[in-house]
């Protein structure tokens, strides 16, 4: 491409034609991909900053008006002020403030953080020793265990969902224990995160040389001490990746929340809360504000840890 002869002696060889066409196609492709990926993201933001009335009249307004953006931020100035009536109307007119304060999104955020945090902690506590056992110890049934985990990973969530639903209803009936709350569903979330955590950690542990551990064992350290002081510190990058993925899966999870939490609104997670908002007489623009609130943490995580995450993804194959 660099060795271009002068214009007059250009020969349109096949190489040149195809390279030129390729470049044109590439530029067009970049534009096209940006339209289908970045534009929806932008449009979500756009709609979340406009009053519904404006969207109805002018659906294709590409940039929100300045006064509409100001209205969204208006409650910031009045909260804690001395005019509650004015503040209430400012909140109603601001999509974000309304969703957070009037539609209980603060509660949903709390629930989602609790569930996702617990799911990360439990997944790691369970998966690290198990992954260690599978990669470092010989025992009958090891292969069956490894393959079994993979099979579970391919299995449909809804098939597990029905009997668990029946089970939870009966437990509540028989023992009076209501498991359909954020803590109860955390256990169920493990069905989708634990196989992933195990699989990714297993692949990583296989790449860590055993020499250090073996040396420590010969020196008389016990196994659990070795896991704690050698294996885990060496695997920190993988553990961090797994933690982030498990967090994102739990944060995005919808089906189990729908099956198990639908009857108790105070326990709703963000995705369920947002989906339920759809059924009510709520301006569509509020839905978009809710979508932005759910999406931003995930985008931020991905933005900061992208390299980490893409490497982990191709190593483990994260289900979506």
């Amino acid at each position: 491409m660099a060795q271009k002869p002068s214009r007059s002696s250009v020969t349109w060889s096949r190489e040149r034609i195809e390279t030129t066409l390729g470049t044109i196609l590439k530029v067009l492709s970049i534009i096209l991909f940006l339209i289908v990926t970045a534009f929806p993201l932008y449009w979500m933001l756009n709609l979340s900053f406009r009053p519904y009335g404006d969207v109805l009249v002018n659906p294709a307004r590409l940039v929100p008006r300045a006064q509409d953006i100001a209205a969204v931020f208006a409650p910031l100035k009045c909260i804690g002020g001395n005019n509650p009536d004015l503040c209430a109307s400012a909140i109603r007119n601001s999509s974000y403030a309304a969703v957070l304060l009037e539609y209980n999104f603060l509660t949903f955020i709390r629930n989602s953080v609790i569930i996702a945090g617990l799911t990360v902690a439990l997944s790691l506590i369970l998966a690290i020793p198990a992954a260690y056992a599978v990669t470092r110890l010989e025992f009958p049934g090891r292969d069956i265990f490894s393959w079994g985990i993979l099979l579970i990973y391919l299995f449909p969530a809804i098939v597990i969902g029905i009997p668990l639903f029946v089970f939870f209803v009966r437990i509540q009936q028989a023992l009076g224990i209501e498991l359909r709350n954020p803590y109860g569903v955390t256990i169920i979330y493990l069905a989708s995160t634990l196989p992933l955590a195990l699989y990714m950690l297993r692949s990583y542990f296989l790449t860590i040389p055993k020499d250090l551990e073996e040396a420590a064992l010969i020196d008389g350290a016990n196994r659990l001490g070795v896991i704690w002081r050698i294996t885990i510190p060496l695997a920190i990058p993988a553990i961090a990746t797994v933690a982030l993925y498990v967090f994102m899966i739990a944060w995005n999870e919808f089906l189990y929340a729908l099956l198990f939490l639908i009857d108790s609104p105070p326990s709703w997670t963000l995705p369920l809360g947002l989906q339920q908002l759809d059924g009510q007489e709520v301006p569509r623009t509020f839905l978009m504000a809710g979508s932005v609130i759910i999406t931003v943490p995930v985008i931020v995580i991905f933005f900061f840890f992208e390299r980490f995450l893409t490497r982990g993804l191709t190593a483990g194959g994260v289900k979506g």
């Binding site: 970045a38 993201l41 979500m44 995005n252 995705p271 932005v292 759910i294 999406t295 991905f302």
Partner: peptide
């Protein structure tokens, strides 16, 4: 990064968009 957006964002938001 933009290309990854449809994959990492919560499906609830994507469906509503």
């Amino acid at each position: 990064g933009f290309l990854l957006f449809p994959y990492v964002a919560p499906v609830v938001s994507l469906a509503f968009i």
